[in-house]
Design a protein around this nucleic acid. Sequence first.
DNA 1: ACCTGAACACCGTTCAAGT
DNA 2: ACCTGAACACCGTTCAAGT
Lengths: 197, 197
Amino acid sequence: VDEVGTSAFNMRMLADRLDTSTATLYRHVAGKEELMVYVVERLLSGIQVRGEDQDDRPGTWQDAAAWGALQFYRAISQHPNVLPLLAAQVPVGPNGLAARERSIGTLIDFGFPAPLAARAYNALAHYVLGFAVVQHAGAPGPDEIAALGNYFRGLDPELYPATIAAADALTEVTLEQEFLDGLQFILDGIDRARRRR
Amino acid sequence: VDEVGTSAFNMRMLADRLDTSTATLYRHVAGKEELMVYVVERLLSGIQVRGEDQDDRPGTWQDAAAWGALQFYRAISQHPNVLPLLAAQVPVGPNGLAARERSIGTLIDFGFPAPLAARAYNALAHYVLGFAVVQHAGAPGPDEIAALGNYFRGLDPELYPATIAAADALTEVTLEQEFLDGLQFILDGIDRARRRR
DNA sequence: ACCTGAACACCGTTCAAGT
DNA sequence: ACCTGAACACCGTTCAAGT
C-alpha cells in the first residue's frame, strides 16, 4: 500500500510478490477488505503513548497530549497512502483500542474527570486525523492533473485575496509547525475548560 | 453515491438510471474519477458562510466561525458516503476555494491578522473533517461485521477501563453536542492567541 | 453529429484438479 | 492437507457500427 496506494494495490500483485497464487491468499485472509483492516492496525501499532515506560514520564498533561498527537501525525505522514483507509473504516482493532485507552487513561491520571478526558481526547484525535487528511489527501499524480484539464485555469487570483494573503503567511512555516500551532489552540481551550470546573 | 456508497457506485448503474449507455457518459465526463470530483464540489456548494447577505451578520467572530464549522459538519452528516472522497482528493474546485476564501476573509474582517486567520481556519477545518471522518467512517454493514468474524470477541472489557468510563460519559450527550464541545476548545484557544498579540 | 451494443482489459473471488 | 491454474463475475473504458 505504501508503494502503490490503495487503488493500485491488488491481490494478484501481492500473490506474485509472495511467490504464491491469489487462491492461496484466501487461505489466510477472508478477502481484500480484511487485509486493509490489518493495514490500519499495523499503522496504529507504531504509536506509543509517553509514560508507558518509567524512564520517560511527561511533566504535564499538555506534554503528554502533544506528544501523542505528534506520534499519530508522524505515523500517518510516513504512510500517507493509508489515509483513505482511515476514512473508510473505524479502527477498532486491538492497537486502535489500546492507543485510545492509554491516551484517555493518561489524562485521567493527570486529574481529568472522565467526561472531560474523553472530550479532550476526541477533539485532539479528530484534529490530527483531519489535518492529515487535508495534508496528504490524494496527492494527485501528473495524469490526474492532466485529466482534470483546464478545469481550474479560469480562476482569477484577485478573486481570492484572503486565501492568498493567508497562503503567503503560511508558506513561511513548516507543515509540522502549522500542525503544532493548531494543536496549541486545542490544548489552550482544553486547559481553560479544565480550570473552569 | 448517497444511495449506495462510493464502492458500490458504478458507471453501468448510472447509465441505466439516466436511460442511456455507459459510452454516452464518457461524452460528458472524462471518467469516474472526474465525476467524483464533481460530487465533492456538489457537497461543498451547499455551504454558506454567515454574513454573506446583509440581513444575517454574526455578532462575533466566534459566532461566525462556529456557524461555518457547523454548516460544514452538517453537510457531511447529510452525505456521509462522500467522506472517503474527501480523504482521497483535495477539494480545490470553485466551491471549495470560495468557502475557504469567505471564511478566512470573515476572520480578517473581524480584525485578525492574516497569519492568525489562516491558522485558525486550518485548525477549525481540520477538526471538522476529522470529526466527520471518525463519526461516519465506514459504518460497517452486517456482512462486513460478520466477515470480521470473531476477531474482537476475545477483548476483555476490563482491559479498557478509561475507554469505558469515557464512553459512558459520552453516551449522555448527542454527537452534535460533542462536536460543539470540541469546537469550543478550539475557539477558546484561538481567542487566547488573539488576545495575546 | 450523436448514440450504443459489444468488446477489451483488469481485478476480486472461487473451484476443480493436482501434488 | 495444502496449493494452484483457470475460470467466473464484475466494472471502467473504448470503438466499430448504427441512426
